[in-house]
Amino acid sequence: MHIPDGILPVPVTLGGYAVCAAAVFFCLHRINKRPDPAADIPKAALLTAAFFVASLIHIPIPPASVHLVLSGLLGVLLGFFAIPAILIGLFFQAAMFGHGGLTTLGINWVIIGFPAMAAHYIFRFGLRGRQGPKQTATFAFLAGSLAIMLSVLFFSLLLVTAVPADLGAAVEKTAMLVLIVAHVPLALIEGVITAMTATFLLRVSPRVLHGV
C-alpha cells in the first residue's frame, strides 16, 4: 500500500505533506503536554524499528503478495507517538529500499498514519470500563485488523480519484477487488498479532499498555 514516486499529481502529494505536517504538529503538541514527554521515546524507537522491518516480511496471498504493516499495533501501544514513528519508518523505507517514495511520503503517511490513530481510539474506547483479558484481546484485534482495512480503503480511493490511468473501468474494478481480497487475511493476521501483544502486556506490564 505504499505509493511510489511519479504516480500522483503534484497537488495531491503536496496536500499529503500538508495533512501529515499538521497531524505531526498536533501530536507533538499533545506529547509535550505530558508530565514527562520523553518517557516513551525508547518504546517508540523500538516499535518504529519493528514497523520498518515489517515491510520487508512479505506474505504470498495469491494472486498478490502483501506485507506486514503493524500500524494498528503502533496505534494501540504508542498513541500519539505512533504518528511521528510511522513517518520516520516510512522515510527510511523509501530512502533505503525504495519502498514508497519521498515525494509521496506525506500521502503514504495519510494511508497508514490515520488508521493507526483510529486503532488507538478504538482500543481506548473499548477499555473505558472493565479492562479484562477478553475485552483487551477483542478490541486490540479490532484495532489491528481495522487499521489495515482502513488503509486499503484510503489506498483504493486514491487509485480511483487521483491516479491518472488509461485503464478501463472493468480493469480498475478488478484490480481494486484483488487488492481488498488479498488484504483481508493480512487484516486478520495483524489483528491476532495486536491482540496477542496486548494481552501479554496486560499480564506482565499493564503500565506499558495503558500508559499511552
Rank of each mutant, 00 (worst) to 15 (best):
V110M: 06
F25A: 15
A23D: 07
F139K: 01
G132C: 08
A169M: 14
W109F: 14
P60V: 05
G168V: 04
P84Y: 10
V178T: 11
I31P: 12
F81P: 06
A50Q: 07
T197A: 15
L167C: 00
H2L: 03
S145A: 15
P37S: 02
I86W: 05
A38P: 00
V163G: 02
Q93I: 10
K43Y: 06
V76Q: 09
K43E: 10
G132P: 03
H2P: 00
L74M: 14
F51G: 04
P185W: 09
R128G: 13
T194K: 07
V76E: 04
I31E: 11
R30K: 15
I61C: 01
H210T: 12
H58I: 09
L201H: 05
P185F: 11
V192S: 01
A169N: 09
C27I: 07
I111H: 05
M176T: 09
G113N: 03
V69M: 14
L167K: 12
G16R: 03
V181A: 10
T138P: 00
G72W: 02
P62W: 07
G79N: 08
V110A: 11
L87M: 12
G75W: 04
M96A: 11
L167S: 12
G106D: 08
D36Y: 03
A85H: 05
L150C: 05
F25P: 00
A195G: 04
G79Y: 01
A45R: 08
G89R: 07
I7E: 00
G126P: 00
A22T: 10
V160F: 08
C27S: 14
A143L: 08
H120Q: 08
V10S: 03
L159W: 06
C27E: 07
M96G: 06
H99D: 14
I88K: 01
P62I: 05
